[in-house]
Nucleic acid binder design. Structure first.
Lengths: 225, 225
DNA sequence: TGATGATGTAATCACTGGTTACATTGCGCG
DNA sequence: CGCGCAATGTAACCAGTGATTACATCATCA
């Protein structure tokens, strides 16, 4: 490495002058977008480096400069998808007050499933653990750990307020995660037809099972609906 | 088809005489076993027709006679795995009396997760819906429908006996399935390390979340443990 | 015993990911 | 100001995979 801390991509501004200017412009970005689109169209398994290169109008070897392997591309794609996922979750949480942690927990589950149902292939890439390496140093891993920690605190708050019937919060947390992850996965893996769940019903069913779970862990307040 | 209803494999008995006798013996069976082993070793994705052929000591084109495609091989593998899965479930249910349907529901979940945790790759092949075609005419599909129907009846019995607090049985059933499927999937997809669940803990955790769920759907009988 | 059909072999094709040698382009330094 | 150099894309190649065909071999049965 000759000079460290280069600005990484300083000039290169040439958005739409020549039709096929010099090299490409921002191949990295375009490849990620193409991969996301490929996943959207044919599932996560349908993503191939060559096809992404083809769509970017570039030779099969070109992506190698930016992504030394398919895994590297998928890791970048997962990072992008994860950011969008987090954004949706954050937006949903912003609408529920801190004063009702159980409601926040519920909103978290709903937002999780809503995004997963609308972006099944992207969700699969993030969570399948077969499309890229999972080492703890990744942004994605840290991101995930943050969500886990947040959920833990939310449940602790709920318990402190007497909203939960059981104090085994870890158990509640894992069960909740398994529930939503399982539902999202059933969708991805095509289980819903055998269960008689139509496309448009899925969102309602998601809400129904989350509410069932919440009712199951909530402390008994007969007055609550 | 010249003569229908042939015994399918009548003579051919030559288990261990010559070292490399004539053709092979029962290549179809051997290929399925090799594929199961490959899945065990490297996950479902690691199964390849060529490698299975290699392990069977046979040329790459040989499997084509028995399985015209990788999907066909995987379908056969899934059928074999599904049989073993069903056997485990049946054995577990045989130990719980008909008189306590909720306990049977619980035992079903426990057996489901026990097999899934011990045979993750085989479970993945069965349930992932990306390793073979899922048409309704398959034995596997009928098999699955049977399990769903059985669960439904069990829950109906439990409700009739006053063991459940909610009458929306479909919702309970789907939530239960999502819970166990999600847990099994988290294991397959390598989520447990981030959740601080060690290998040997997984079985206990599985039982814990199933019990949490059961407690959540059970009618309130303060005396029950 | 010899014909026939089932089964495995060899060879080939298309496609994928990965890798290297080379060409081109534009930036930055002398 | 212009030239070298590094970044970036191209072309060509390799290995591995699934699929498919022509051909060889072997077991059975008429």
């Amino acid at each position: 490495m000759p000079v460290s801390a280069k600005p990484k991509r300083p000039p290169v501004r040439r958005p739409k002058d020549q039709p096929k200017p010099y090299h490409h412009g921002d191949l990295r970005r375009v490849l990620i977008e193409a991969a996301l689109q490929l996943a959207r169209e044919g599932g996560a398994a349908a993503v191939s480096v060559r096809e992404a290169a083809r769509r970017a109008g570039v030779s099969p070897g070109a992506p190698f400069r930016h992504f030394p392997s398919r895994d590297a591309l998928m890791t970048a794609v997962a990072g992008e998808a994860q950011q969008r996922f987090r954004a949706e979750i954050s937006a949903a949480l912003a609408e529920v007050p801190d004063s009702d942690p159980l409601a926040r927990f519920r909103a978290l589950g709903l937002a999780y499933l809503r995004w997963a149902m609308r972006n099944p292939a992207h969700f699969e890439i993030i969570s399948s653990g077969q499309y890229f390496v999972h080492d703890k140093a990744t942004d994605l891993s840290r991101d995930n750990a943050e969500v886990i920690d947040f959920t833990e605190r939310t449940l602790a708050d709920a318990y402190a307020l007497g909203q939960l019937r059981s104090g085994d919060l870890k158990r509640v947390q894992i069960a909740g995660r398994a529930l939503v992850y399982g539902f999202a996965r059933m969708n991805i893996d095509g289980h819903f037809p055998r269960w008689g769940i139509a496309e448009e019903e899925a969102a309602l069913t998601a809400e129904a099972i989350i509410d069932l779970f919440i009712e199951g862990i909530a402390s008994k307040r007969p007055g609550a609906a």
